[in-house]
Design a protein around this nucleic acid. Structure first.
Length: 633
RNA sequence: GCUGGCGUAGCUCAGCUGGUAGAGCAGCUGAUUUGUAAUCAGCAGGUCCGGGGUUCGAGUCCCCGCGCCAGCUCCA
């Protein structure tokens, strides 16, 4: 076996990675959690099949966290089986932030059960049961899992050539390809987080299992930090801040549709204004109807593929639900494009609509502002020649990334290819995927491929942004569409004076204003930079004697376009606390000294009582500049 | 849509095994005129999510809806 430093160790046939670790040294043997053999992460107890490269992994290697979590899932299942002997077992993998295990049980788990399971897991870990690995034949496996129908179903899918392995720790046996840590004692820092139903194999037509989520780390510090991050996310939750900062509400009479308060409306309009300003030069904004007959949706393909997500409207004359609120803007843009003859010289032609859209989302899918039934996209459709795709994709990409930059959001790219449910021929898809991939490659940016995740009409590039606490959100998108031009018979007149088919690109930057605002709220934890803040300055006279002086300052600020408000009730400390709670960026305090000198004592949000006494004119000028520059604050 | 949990004053939450509701904040009124994160006092606020049922009696127990939350499915 060849070690990472180039040394070659000769071991007996049938040796394991654990043996290799022991030969290297006792310290490593003790710290070892798994190994990488010929590029494959394997369990230490796995026999080495042939000579090759080997590297022993300890908790310092990131890959072992996944192994630990996978083992934690088995330890959870061990505990559950111990306490609920009849529980059927589904799958139990490691996931991004932890692990889960699915169980088939009579009665769903309660929050109290989680605590009990967690305690039992600690016992299983303390018992330090070794994880044993064994290769079995399919027939033997069927015998071992005779009482586990879910495992038997999985076994049916193996073909004869595949290696089937089982792992056992103490009483618990699972069909599993591993790898696992050497023994249950390696699990020290873990926590069970939640329980919820999950369809067997993710199929909503199959039975629902009960899934338990948990997380595990190598060290207590990492676990604590993770739990702390979950708390922090809760603290920033836009639904909570939306209420506390008085930005929006929901009413049961309109599930999934936000009601924007005066403060929230300012935020919304400010964002919209920003979007309009950026796209003023290179895009053409159009307003289109909200309601259409099904004829349009039949032509676009939505009637067939998207109807269950559309709000259908009764037409009194026909007595049928053959009208619909628009769930997307594309068809209306196509309709408009097709209404005139276009020259190749006009292309690319970019239509944008910021209208409200309606999608009838499953009731259980609704969540705050991030999953709603009524929302507005900054929705653009570009009509262009095929030879313009690469340049256009680059242009749109820069445009989108520039938008995220303005908010300090970093992003990554995903390339999504044809889904199962789709329209258009395979040849068209080949062409679209090829063209989009080529354009993407040409930008030189890194991207991840997500097969089968494309829109039903074409492949897409999705933009995922990372917020200030490291969470990912899918926002913008660039989708290539060769189908719509066919369906809507779109044309342009080429240099050769004959008609040609344009290509369509669907583009959104914010995704939806609703979701984007939710992300901004959480990203800034409600402390918006001044240009976005619903209330930018709160003017606080020290006592009622200085109200007039404060009112004068408010007029001055308002005249300069700054959103300012005078608050003169209650005591000064009370009002300062109130303004801090509402996360108003600036407090302008006016008392005897300031009134006399024509100055203002400026207290900045979150800066404590480090105030800054400056001339009023200067204060106004500074604010105007900060707002104009859209400073990050 | 599915599984589970939750739903008490504008907000955050008490309310034991059934005996027709309570606090803090917010609101209103008054006193105080205040210099950097809550001045004091008083008052007013509730179809206990909605509808059925069990019971002498239901916020509390049962059933059916609705909404929200955690997930699943789906997705901007």
């Amino acid at each position: 076996m060849k070690l990472p430093d180039g040394k070659v160790l000769t071991v007996e046939r049938g040796s394991t990675s654990a043996d290799v670790a022991a030969m290297i040294g006792p310290r490593l043997a003790k710290a070892a959690l798994a190994a990488v053999v010929d590029g494959q992460t394997v369990s230490l107890m796995e026999p080495l099949e042939s000579s090759g490269d080997i590297r022993i992994l300890t908790e310092k290697d990131a890959a072992t966290l996944t192994v630990l979590r996978h083992s934690a899932a088995h330890i959870l299942a061990t505990a559950v089986r111990e306490l609920r002997p009849g529980a059927g077992i589904g799958f139990g993998p490691a996931i991004d932030e932890g692990f889960y295990y699915d169980f088939e049980v009579e009665a769903p788990f309660t929050p109290d059960d989680l605590a009990t399971f967690e305690a039992k897991m600690a016992e299983v870990a303390a018992a330090d049961m070794p994880f044993g690995r064994r290769r079995v034949s399919n027939e033997e496996a069927r015998g071992l899992f005779a009482d586990d129908p879910l495992k038997l179903e999985r076994l049916e899918e193996f073909d004869d050539a595949e290696v089937i392995t089982v792992y056992q720790n103490g009483p618990f046996l699972d069909l599993c390809k591993g790898p696992h840590v050497p023994s249950t004692g390696r699990l020290k820092h873990f926590k069970l987080l939640s329980a919820a139903g999950a369809y067997w194999r993710g199929d909503h037509r199959r039975q629902m299992l009960q899934r338990i989520y948990g997380t595990a780390f190598h060290t207590k510090a990492e676990l604590d930090e993770h739990l702390h991050r979950l708390e922090e996310a809760k603290r920033r939750d836009h639904r909570r801040l939306g209420r506390e900062l008085d930005l929006f509400q929901f009413f049961p009479v309109s599930p999934g549709a936000a009601f924007w308060t005066p403060r929230g409306t300012i935020l919304y309009n400010t964002l919209e204004q920003f979007v309009r300003e950026r796209q003023r030069e290179q895009f053409l904004e159009v307003k289109t109807p909200l309601l259409y007959t099904k004829q349009l949706w039949e032509q676009s393909g939505h009637w067939g593929k998207y109807r269950e997500n559309m709000f259908l409207v009764l037409d009194n004359e026909t007595g049928e639900h053959d009208m619909s609120l628009k769930p997307m803007n594309c068809p209306s843009h196509h309709l408009y494009y097709a209404s005139a003859t276009h020259s190749y010289r006009e292309l690319p032609l970019r239509y944008v609509t910021l209208d409200v859209l309606h999608r009838n989302e499953a009731s259980g899918a609704l969540s705050g502002l991030t999953r709603v039934r009524q929302f507005a996209q900054d929705d653009c459709h570009v009509y262009l020649r095929e030879d313009q795709i690469a340049a256009e994709v680059k242009f749109l990409m820069d445009f989108i990334l520039g938008h995220y930059d303005a908010f300090g959001l970093s992003s990554s790219l995903k390339f999504a290819t044809r889904p199962e449910q789709r329209i258009g021929s395979d040849e068209t898809w080949d062409r679209a995927e090829g063209a989009l991939r080529e354009a993407l490659e040409a930008t030189g940016r890194a991207y991840e491929v997500v097969p089968g995740d494309g829109a039903f009409y074409g492949p897409k590039i999705d933009f995922h942004v990372t917020d200030s606490i490291g969470r990912h959100w899918q926002l913008g998108t660039i989708q290539l569409d060769y189908n719509a031009p066919e369906r809507f018979d779109l044309e342009y007149v080429g240099e050769d004076n004959s008609p040609h088919r344009p290509v369509v690109i669907h583009r959104a930057v914010c995704g939806s204003f609703e979701r984007f605002i939710a992300i901004l709220i959480e990203h800034y934890a409600g402390a918006f930079p001044t240009w976005l803040a619903p209330e930018q300055v709160r003017v606080l006279p020290v006592s009622e004697r200085w109200t007039a002086s404060g009112a004068e300052l408010v007029s001055q600020l308002t005249a300069a376009g700054v959103r300012a408000q005078l608050v003169d009730r209650e005591t000064l400390p009370y009002r300062i606390r109130e303004a801090e709670t509402l996360k108003v960026p600036y407090m302008a305090i006016v008392g005897e000294r300031e009134a006399a000198a024509g100055t203002v004592a400026v207290r900045q949000r979150g800066a404590g009582n480090k105030q800054d006494v400056i001339a009023r004119d200067e204060f106004v000028a500074r604010l105007v500049q900060e707002i104009r520059e859209r400073a990050q604050g």
